[in-house]
């Protein structure tokens, strides 16, 4: 279980972004997190995934040295999350040896592997990022607006696969989105970040 307790984070000269956020995610559970723009959902995601250090509070999953972080973050913009000078093969190999099972489940065509990131569409690239994330065998995934820039059909495709994977591999997913209806249909429970971070 991923347990986040009393997480507090402040931005220099701007005061607290959020205070005392407590949240837990079970393995295999999909939890939605929604809220207005600019209240720190993405920063919260980065703190939990280990990109930023919190001022206070604890997270029970931390990265061991030279090991992938057990909580992996999938970024909103896949084109920023891959090195533009690398072929897709190398992008995927950064997470470890390529596992064909994931490529198949995410419908990644093997001919894409020798392309460069700018030769794939947004949805294709996002699937690459998801595959890379899954190859590290994470316990939990934070999906930060991962389908916001995609069309409804691609969105449905990606979430279908991700939901299946969450159930079969019992990976807990924290899905962050503005899209309340999407979260309602997708998740086991949906929380509002405003209520969580109330002072």
């Amino acid at each position: 279980m991923l347990t986040i307790s009393n997480l507090t984070y402040h931005i220099a000269n701007k005061g607290y972004l959020f205070q005392n956020v407590t949240l837990s995610v079970q393995p295999g559970e999909i939890v939605g997190l929604t809220g207005h723009s600019g209240i720190g959902k993405s920063t919260f995601a980065k703190v939990v995934a280990g990109y930023l250090t919190p001022d206070e509070g604890t997270i029970n999953r931390v990265q061991n040295k030279r090991q992938p972080h057990p909580v992996q973050l999938i970024w909103q913009h896949p084109e920023q999350a891959v090195n533009p000078k690398w072929r897709i093969k190398k992008v995927l190999e950064e997470a470890g040896p390529i596992d064909d099972e994931w490529l198949e489940r995410l419908q990644i065509h093997s001919s894409w592997l020798k392309r460069f990131p700018d030769q794939l569409s947004g949805g294709e690239l996002q699937r690459i990022c998801i595959a890379r994330c899954l190859m590290t065998r994470p316990d939990f995934i934070i999906a930060d607006e991962i389908t916001t820039m995609l069309d409804p059909i691609t969105q449905a495709d990606i979430w279908d696969v991700l939901r299946q994977i969450a159930k079969t591999e019992s990976i807990g997913i924290l899905a962050i989105s503005h899209h309340y209806e999407l979260l309602e249909r997708l998740t086991d429970r949906t929380l509002s970040f405003e209520t969580l971070s109330k002072k």
């Binding site: 995934a49 280990g50 990109y51 990265q63 030279r66 090991q67 992938p68 972080h69 992996q72 973050l73 970024w75 913009h77 920023q80 999350a81 891959v82 090195n83 000078k85 950064e94 997470a95 890379r132 590290t136």
Partner: peptide, 24 residues
């Protein structure tokens, strides 16, 4: 760059990042 920060979270050390991200 997000992809460099991500490299760290994927478990890659400083020298690996230097060799594969920074130097090229």
């Amino acid at each position: 760059m997000p992809y460099v920060q991500m490299s760290k979270q994927l478990g890659k050390g400083f020298w690996w990042r230097t060799k594969h991200h920074f130097l090229p």
